[in-house]
Every structure is written in structure tokens, then in C-alpha cells.
């Protein structure tokens, strides 16, 4: 597989990672996502990792980078579907994925993004009005 496909769903971008990525592919995904956020003015990015059996520190860092960079581009990222074995291993490995929000599935992820952007915009409106 050359690139991981990025789907557009309304104001969200959805990425489903289904292959065991080598490092280059992960970096390409990062670049493609940032370009897609900019091009589509997306408000939210959902990265579904329910098919991933392993998340090591490289992938963890990639997720952290995506979350941070997308925030700069005014989009929220949520990682969804992490498997229990992966979560247990990440805790043991010492990775807490700071700055990365998570949800059990894509639907809950979208809900999370909608709620948080609603809150933020509510604040903006109150500040202006």
C-alpha cells in the first residue's frame, strides 16, 4: 500500500489505519493529513486504530504530532478504537499520549469533537457579546 486513504465525512476527516505501517508510510500519512485539513478546512480528524495490533513509540509520537499540528490548523483530532492489549502495553511502555484525545469508536469521537467545539465557540460568543 502506497498511501493510507483519507475519507471526507462532512466537516470531519476519517483515517482508518489497517496495515502494519513502516515508518515512511506513517510520515507520509502525517503530511497527507495536514494537507487535507488545510485543503478541506476540516474541523475534526478521526483516526481509527481499531485494526492496529501494535502501537509503539513511533506511532505514538506520530499520533501526538498529528494532534498538535492539527490544533494549530484549528482542527481537533480524536484517536478511536484502541484495543485493550494495546492500551495495557502503552501504559507499561510508559506512553501516556499527552494531548491526544481518545474515544471508543468513531461515532463517539465525532460527538466528542462536536461537544468541545460547541463549548469553545460558546465561549467565543460570550466573550464577544
Amino acid at each position: 500500500m502506497d498511501r493510507i486513504p483519507i475519507l471526507k465525512m462532512g466537516e470531519f476527516l476519517l483515517v482508518t489505519i489497517q496495515v502494519d505501517m513502516h515508518d515512511r508510510l506513517a510520515m507520509t500519512l502525517q503530511d497527507d493529513l495536514m494537507e487535507a485539513i488545510r485543503a478541506r478546512a476540516a474541523r475534526g480528524v478521526l483516526i481509527d486504530i481499531s485494526a492496529l495490533e501494535i502501537v509503539d513509540s513511533f506511532i505514538g509520537r506520530m499520533l501526538g504530532n498529528i494532534a498538535a499540528m492539527s490544533r494549530v490548523l484549528d482542527a481537533e483530532t480524536v484517536v478511536t478504537g484502541m484495543r485493550p492489549a494495546v492500551a495495557i502495553t502503552l501504559v507499561e511502555l510508559g506512553m501516556s499520549l499527552p494531548g491526544v484525545r481518545t474515544a471508543l469508536d468513531v461515532e463517539k469521537g465525532m460527538e466528542l469533537i462536536r461537544t468541545s467545539t460547541r463549548l469553545l465557540e460558546g465561549d467565543d460568543r460570550r466573550a464577544q457579546g
Binding site: 478511536t80 484502541m82 492500551a87 495495557i88 481518545t102 471508543l104
Partner: peptide, 12 residues
Amino acid sequence: LKTVAAARLMGA
């Protein structure tokens, strides 16, 4: 504590 941390990573 590790269980709570893992649950949080998963989104719960």
C-alpha cells in the same frame, strides 16, 4: 492505576 490509565487511553 494501570487499568485506569489504560481505560483512559482507550477513551473511557
